[in-house]
Design a protein around this nucleic acid. Structure first.
Length: 789
DNA sequence: GGAGGCCTCGGAAGG
DNA sequence: CGAGGCCTCC
């Protein structure tokens, strides 16, 4: 490395980078080159002889970690691999894998995601016969989560008089009990939820001084990005880890704290100053991103917040255009105005689609924007939505992998014990559950001992359970030696899951099948090259030669919730996203839409000062994304939940100093051309833009499955209902045999392909003319024999 | 077991 | 309005 990185930095940036010893806090205004400072600081440490193994760098998202690691690798090369760099959760999970047995967990512990956690809580609420209208699972989980984020165990919770009183007065006295049951159930399943990764790390470091010592020695230098978003548990762990060397450097911007609603605590910044009296503070106040107008407008908005650190963001950039405000008569007109404006700016300023972003407060607002962009044939991409790993079919297959690795994973077991259908019904499962309770064991334990005569289940069902257990156990054995891909594809086939999806020829079914293939391809890539294409920033590879096992893959993806979308190879698109997901990004031209009271600021925030200030910071984040042009819009009426409501302009508009604004424009649709835009080929021909309209949707491009997708879903047309004769009289279901032609009141005439099970629970597969195979329970189906065999 | 009807409810969102 | 959960009915 022979260039001088120090020269690339301004004065305060240099100071921050060169301050190596002792605690430091970098307050970094929007667009002030924070990422550059962070990367160069790590480079600087390494240049001064610090071993990358001794540097821990924590971020909030996988994406941020990935990007930073790549940037450092570009500068220092291969050595970057040895940095400990990742999200709080991934780094702590990694420590816990090594140390978990000390706190009673297997090293193969499962990580429950939010869905797993909610479904477990829901079950517990039902088991306790509590009303899930009062004890809403998401609320219960939220309460448990914030307890853990404040380092309360369930025992602490139960003993805390104030909390107990709060719960009593709010009519939910059983919250503490639910916490206890949930915690015990997770423990029994060898599972940790996201909050446990923090809480258990804390417990580990607190109760095992030797472990604490080991990691304190390892992490001689600790860096934290987005410090304003840390919660209490994270803060305490940080303090513990860095207590020996006190080389801790945190970077953040209180003005961009937008996750308080999830437990982030700006107070940490203030506590930091108190907890480290010899703290050095650096302020990065020069903005390199935006025009003077934009920077000043942002400053004038944030000045309305009471709670903030002193800081003056300024820029040397040009003055730039004044901020434009568009007023539209309705949400659809707002979309049209934005799309038209993008079209014009693109022409006038010779810009690309990807130079534009449309930011909104709520996902529902994307619809009117998408429609308008489509009309003008402007390609766009909507960010956010269901991630690949949350798709049902993916979770199903992953549940097999989870159960293979950890037989006690209750949520995984529940997902698949009868999927694909193998004749183990709900009633059977309940019997297993009761027996497990009786034995003080897990359901898996009972399944393993299913032959015990005291278990009151029919013998043929017992056999099915035994078969299931045998196959999972055989997977577990395979998974110990064979590589991840071999095991994964074996499980996909031998479990019947692949076949099940293959047989579903609906368009959804085909896409499910393709997604599974996609997952397997990712595992293959991981097995061969060590990194899945969708991988989290992989931490150092311990042993490059060793076989990559399924458990390695599962650890790699367990904390992946933001898997990058596959793109269709065409990247020049307008970006549509919520303000939250725009944090950290920048665009030449930015539209912030829906600036209306009760929308931005959100209706739920306007009653408390704290929440309103958070909304204001959110608005601050939105406008500071823009480099050159900022356009703000609002509608005077909009559809919300099916009703047309009228809207007032947002108070935030008035908070922008008017000298940075151009006169508001009321926008109206141009008189409609005779031909509809979208049908007008001449329109396309003259502007030279191709029709993109997301035509080549890849398998899991999110546009193919968000609710905002406007493409008509091809549905198989339903055949007209069959009219049964008025004298229709069903035959005795006991007389139905395979091969017979039968008549059904609704489906008409069909042939019995197969009959399974014994009366009265026997089930027939009947192929009805023009309607395909139907599975019918004979006792209900009321079939009439048309022709016996 | 599964399709379809009815009811409810609605914020943003990382790991 | 639209998605998801639950219940019913076949």
């Amino acid at each position: 490395m022979n260039w001088n990185y120090i020269e690339q930095l301004n004065e305060p940036q240099q100071q921050a980078v060169q301050h190596i010893k002792g605690p430091a806090m970098i307050i970094a205004g929007a667009g002030s080159g924070k990422t550059r400072v962070l990367t160069y600081r790590i480079v600087h440490l390494m240049q001064h002889g610090v071993d990358p193994f001794n540097i821990l760098s924590l971020t909030f998202t996988n994406k941020a970690a990935r990007e930073m690691k790549n940037r450092i690798a570009e500068i220092v090369g291969d050595e970057a691999r040895n940095l400990w760099m990742g999200t709080f959760h991934s780094v702590f999970a990694r420590i816990l894998r090594v140390e978990s047995e000390k706190i009673g967990y297997p090293s193969s512990f499962t990580i429950y995601d939010t869905d797993d956690a909610k479904s477990l809580i829901k079950k517990i609420i039902a088991e306790q016969e509590l009303d899930d209208k009062v004890y809403k699972p998401s609320l219960v989980l939220g309460r448990i989560s914030s307890a853990k984020n404040n380092l309360f165990s369930w025992q602490d919770y139960a003993n805390h008089i104030e909390l107990q009183n709060e719960d009593k007065y709010s009519g939910k006295p059983k919250l503490g009990l639910l916490f206890e049951l949930y915690a015990k159930r997770c423990f029994k399943a060898g599972a940790m939820d996201f909050d446990d990764l923090l809480y258990n790390t804390y417990i580990l470091l607190k109760n095992f001084p030797d472990v604490l010592n080991k990691y304190q020695n390892k992490f001689k230098y600790v860096m934290v990005d987005e410090f304003q978003d840390t919660n209490f548990a994270q803060y305490v762990i940080l303090r513990k880890l860095s207590a020996q060397h006190e080389n801790i450097c945190v970077v953040g911007d209180d003005a961009q704290s937008i996750y308080a609603f999830r437990g982030a605590n700006i107070q940490n910044i203030l506590n930091f100053e108190k907890d480290y009296p010899d703290l050095k503070t650096f302020k990065l106040e020069q903005n390199y991103r935006s025009t003077k107008n934009i920077v000043s407008a942002a400053n004038s908005v944030i000045a309305n917040n009471r709670a903030q650190l002193k800081k003056e963001v300024w820029t040397d950039n040009t003055e730039g255009d004044k901020i434009k405000v568009l007023r539209a008569i309705s949400d659809n007109e707002e979309g049209n105005a934005v799309a038209r404006q993008i079209f014009e700016n693109k022409m006038n300023d010779r810009l690309l689609n990807k130079d534009f972003a449309i930011l909104y407060r709520t996902n529902a607002q994307s619809r009117s924007m998408e429609e308008a962009l489509r009309k003008l044939n402007i390609p766009y991409r909507v960010y956010g939505g269901v991630s690949f790993f949350q798709r049902k079919e993916i979770k199903d297959l992953l549940a097999y992998f989870r159960l293979t690795i950890n037989n006690y994973d209750e949520e995984a077991l529940e997902r698949i014990y009868n999927y694909p259908t193998r004749g183990i019904g709900k009633t059977t499962y309940e019997k297993l559950f009761i027996k497990a309770d009786e034995w003080g064991a897990t359901i898996w334990d009972v399944m393993e001992k299913i032959s015990e005569p005291e278990i009151d289940i029919a013998n043929n069902t017992k056999q099915k359970i035994a078969d299931f257990v045998t196959s999972i156990k055989s997977y577990s054995i395979l998974a110990k030696n064979q590589n991840a891909y071999e095991v994964a594809s074996h499980i996909a086939q031998s479990s019947g899951l692949l076949r099940e999806l293959f047989n579903d020829k609906t368009s959804e079914g085909i896409s499910h099948y393709e997604n599974i293939q996609e997952l397997l391809a990712g595992i293959k890539e991981f097995t061969e090259n060590g990194n899945a294409p969708l991988s989290a920033p992989s931490l150092e590879i311990e042993n490059a030669e060793a076989t990559r096992l399924l458990t390695d893959y599962m650890q790699d993806i367990a904390l992946l919730t933001d898997a990058e979308q596959k793109d269709d190879g065409y990247n020049d698109k307008v970006s549509l996203m919520t303000v939250h997901s725009a944090k950290g990004l920048e665009f030449k031209n930015v539209f912030v839409v829906g600036l209306e009271e009760n929308l931005f600021p959100s209706q739920l925030s306007v009653n408390s000062r704290e929440e309103l200030e958070e909304e204001r910071r959110l608005f601050y984040v939105a406008i500071t994304r823009a480099e050159n042009k900022l356009i703000i819009s609002y509608a005077m009426s909009r559809f919300r939940w099916g009703n047309l409501i009228s809207c007032e302009p947002s108070r935030f508009l008035e908070e922008i100093d008017p000298k940075y604004l151009s006169a508001p424009e009321t926008v109206m649709s141009e008189p409609k051309p005779k031909n509809n835009y979208s049908k007008n080929n001449g329109w396309k021909a003259t502007n030279g833009y191709e029709n993109f309209n997301e035509s080549s949707t890849p398998v899991f491009s999110k546009n193919s499955f968000t609710k905002n997708n406007l493409k008509p879903v091809s549905k198989t047309p339903k055949p007209a209902a069959f009219k049964a004769p008025t004298d229709f009289l069903p035959d005795n279901p006991r007389d139905i045999r395979e091969g017979m032609n039968v008549m059904h009141v609704k489906f008409g005439v069909g042939k019995v392909v197969k009959i399974e099970g014994n009366f009265p629970d026997n089930k027939a597969t009947v192929n009805f003319q023009g309607q395909g195979d139907k599975q019918l329970l004979l006792k209900y189906a009321r079939l009439k024999i048309v022709e016996s065999v």
